[in-house]
Design a binder for these strands. Structure first.
Length: 715
RNA sequence: GGCGAGGUAGCUCAGUCGGUUAGAGCACAGGCUUCAUAAGCCUGGGGUCGAGGGUUCGAGUCCCUCUCUCGCUACCA
């Protein structure tokens, strides 16, 4: 068989969040495919990277008071750790915010310019004057112009489903600052992909590169009419790469993200003395010594058109190699529903690993993945069941019930008669390999389960444990166990891409490592058997439930209690003391009637934050030691806060419109003690005091009830 | 609305080119076994293949109509 050269990518995880079990569907799927190709003896390189650019990262970094670089470095480290925990084995893991990527963006851009694909047009967008940035549709909310539903995003309405431009929204507000956005125009750069229409038609419809549903989808949605120009630039401020021939404009994150695939390949090439063009240039691969390479992208269905229209267009226009195949998978649901933070089904990779073995999830996903775009459902009962019944009770059990009789001995010198079992399973190998090749892992697992059943039935019939009681039949026992262990090893070869650790353990048990697919064709003979050791623990539903419990972020954590709740809750006696300027708590028994205005002005944050996220914020009780006006500032008051002992913090607080320095001295406040220090015009501010209200006279400092002392943490 | 994918046992699903009596796992019932991590093996009950029509010697499979479910509907990460 000729050795293929295969470059594989998985989608670049965005540096704005942690890896969760939904992401893992893709990385596990891809890792299995890569390990399969390697086991088959193909050269296969698996590259990935963090996707680091765009408005969302910029905003988050700003909110956290640190640089984008610091944010993405932390997130990258977390991603790398999570992937390693699930045995996802990248040959290179890069970042789109690298000089390699910048260079490649420049190169492709030059090609696009040369081919006259770039045009410039003025775009009118909403601009947030307070945050000083243009607003993507999702950062604008307002009232739907069609049906009048409040609190709708800038591009379409949840309630009536109509789509519109954010400029049409009634009473639009920026979700970043609460400011009213204004319309501003800026020049954007576009790629004219309509020039490649006939190429895209041919490439997408050839049947070779895409699943048929995807080809149909593209045909129905995009290819039936002229393709619109693709807007690939964003005006400053934007976290990304500045466009060399268009100062003040940056490449849109989706321009440089797929180029990140190339950049990661480039880094790998540099480390391994490989030639980049062998992998990404079309014409370079005609040498007989280096057969043509294949590029395979694995992605989720949400980013289909980026990878099946824009990206092939960019590659074609710049003379690069096109993907051999884009493998697209569906989303994860848990218990038939979308993952939910409040239900605890939004499980982060790190939380999973705290409770469960990664092999379970790899096996479970494999048993459910087919070659189509169907969503994959994680049913917790089924998860436990498959792990215990199939993996432990089926596969591992074959070794467990045979190895103990021959541990310390060797396997038979010639492979005994087994009624054709080994040959049968060897013959199944090609069908299993075909299933792997087309990502139909459920067929792989089903076939392996049938092989397991055959092996277990064989052992049941031969009952070596009975013969083991008769010393004169020891050789027979050895023969039966040699068969059993070889059948076990054969199945493990087939499952090695899914269960790399188990394959490793099987190699240790039989003292011959599993190195290639052909290991399934030849039985081991005469080799020593190590004493059997547990390979994989059974899982208990309790452990799964604990993981779910751990992942729960109750709605209550982000929901203002309703008046009914507040009245039902045990009422703490309101305490009036010198630190609180007033007690807003109503007298027990009265029904407070709070209006909806505050919420309307600042809607609840839709995105949940985990307890981990919350505990990152170190809230402390602090006492105002001194307060003074700041010369030349019209909103700021300078505070010296004490956290007890001699720990002091200098804080500039924008509360001058509501408090005089005299009112502040001596009182207790709540401060964010670990907010990154920020250089302000008047000096360093080393924290932030917490207050409610919209500004102006409406600023209300938070204060603890009586008895709290400086330095205490707020939980 | 348009487009796409589906509807097969109580549940999750397989079913190739149209071809014998529609399959598997789980769950359920009964039996065997006691080597193995409360593991293993055998047997059984359970189906108008969403509905209707058509093509055919023959339809879960091909065609048409209807119905229900899910997903997508680009300058949005």
């Amino acid at each position: 068989m000729t050795q293929r050269r295969i470059l594989v990518t998985a989608a670049l995880p965005y540096a704005n969040g942690h890896i969760h079990i939904g992401h893992l569907v893709e990385y596990i799927q891809t890792d299995i495919w890569v390990r399969f190709q390697k086991l088959r003896g193909n050269r296969c390189v698996f590259v990935c990277a963090d996707d680091t650019h765009g408005t969302a990262i910029m905003i988050r970094a700003r909110q956290e008071g640190r640089s984008e670089e610091a944010l993405i470095a932390d997130m990258r480290a977390a991603h790398v750790r999570d992937f390693a925990g699930f045995d996802i084995d990248f040959d290179n893991y890069g970042s789109t915010n690298s000089e390699t990527n910048r260079d490649l963006c420049h190169r492709l851009w030059a090609e696009l310019r040369k081919g006259d694909y770039v045009t410039e047009k003025s775009v009118t967008q909403l601009f947030d004057p307070k945050a000083g940035t243009f607003l993507a549709d999702r950062f604008v909310k307002g009232t739907c112009p069609k049906c009048g539903a409040a609190d709708q995003y800038g591009d379409n309405c949840d309630k009536c489903g109509s789509t519109y431009s954010p400029a049409d929204l009634i009473n639009p507000t920026s979700t970043l600052s609460g400011a009213t956005p204004e319309l501003r125009s800026a020049n954007h750069l576009f790629i004219n992909i309509e020039k490649l229409h006939s190429f895209l038609e041919e490439w997408t419809q050839s049947g070779e590169h895409l699943q048929s549903e995807v080809a149909n989808y593209l045909k129905g949605h995009f290819l039936g009419e002229p393709l619109r120009d693709w807007d690939v630039s964003r005006p400053a401020p934007y976290f990304g790469f500045e466009i060399p021939d268009s100062p003040g404009n940056y490449w849109y994150v989706w321009f440089d993200a797929p180029i990140g695939y190339m950049a990661s390949t480039m880094e790998w090439c540099q480390k391994n003395g490989e030639n980049f063009d062998d992998w990404w240039r079309d014409e370079a691969s005609n040498l007989e010594s280096s057969p043509s390479s294949e590029i395979h992208h694995f992605i989720g269905k949400d980013i289909t058109y980026f990878h099946t229209l824009f990206w092939p267009a960019m590659l074609k226009a710049s003379g690069c190699k096109l993907p051999m195949k884009v493998h697209i998978h569906g989303f994860l649901t848990v218990g038939g529903e979308k993952m939910s933070k409040s239900k605890g089904t939004f499980v982060q990779a790190a939380s999973y690993l705290k409770h469960l073995d990664p092999a379970y999830l790899r096996y479970y996903y494999a048993s459910k993945l087919g070659s189509r775009l169907d969503d994959l459902d994680l049913s917790l009962d089924e998860f436990v069941d498959k792990t215990n019944k199939q993996l432990v009770g089926g596969v591992v059990n074959i070794a467990a019930r045979t190895a103990k009789f021959v541990g310390g001995q060797t396997l038979c010198e010639t492979y005994p008669a087994d009624g054709g079992l080994f040959l049968f399973a060897a013959a199944a190998g090609e069908a299993i390999a075909d299933a792997y090749e087309r990502c139909d892992y459920q067929t792989v697992i089903r076939t392996c389960n049938e092989l397991c059943d055959r092996a277990n039935t064989y052992l049941d019939e031969k009952a070596p444990w009975k013969l083991a009681k008769q010393p004169d039949r020891a050789e027979e026992v050895r023969q039966i166990c040699s068969v059993g262990l070889n059948l076990f090893r054969q199945i493990i070869v087939y499952l090695a891409p899914v269960l790399p650790r188990l394959a490793q353990q099987a190699g240790e048990l039989l003292n011959v490592p599993i190195t290639c697919w052909e290991d399934s064709n030849t039985p081991l003979v005469g080799t020593p058997v190590a004493p059997f050791q547990h390979m994989l623990k059974r899982v208990e539903l309790k452990q799964v439930e604990a993981m779910i419990e751990d992942s729960k972020i109750p709605d209550a954590a982000v929901t203002i209690p309703t008046t009914a709740n507040a009245a039902a809750a045990p009422v703490a006696t309101p305490v009036q003391c010198e630190t609180t300027s007033c007690a807003a708590t109503p007298a027990a028994g009265t029904q407070p009637t709070d209006g909806p205005e505050a919420l309307e002005k600042e809607p609840l944050v839709g995105e949940m934050c985990s307890i981990d996220d919350f505990t990152k914020v170190d809230l402390r009780v602090a006492r105002v030691l001194s307060a003074s006006h700041v010369e030349g500032a019209d909103k700021l008051v300078q505070l010296t806060l004490s956290l007890g002992g001699d720990v002091r913090r200098n804080v500039f607080a924008g509360i001058k419109s509501a408090y005089t320095p005299e009112q502040l001295v001596g009182r207790l406040v709540i401060m964010v003690a670990n907010l990154a220090p920020r250089k302000m015009r008047f000096g360093m501010s080393e924290g932030m005091v917490c207050a409610a209200g919209g500004g102006g006279k409406e600023i209300f400092l938070l204060a603890p009830d009586c008895g709290a002392v400086p330095g205490q943490r707020v939980h």
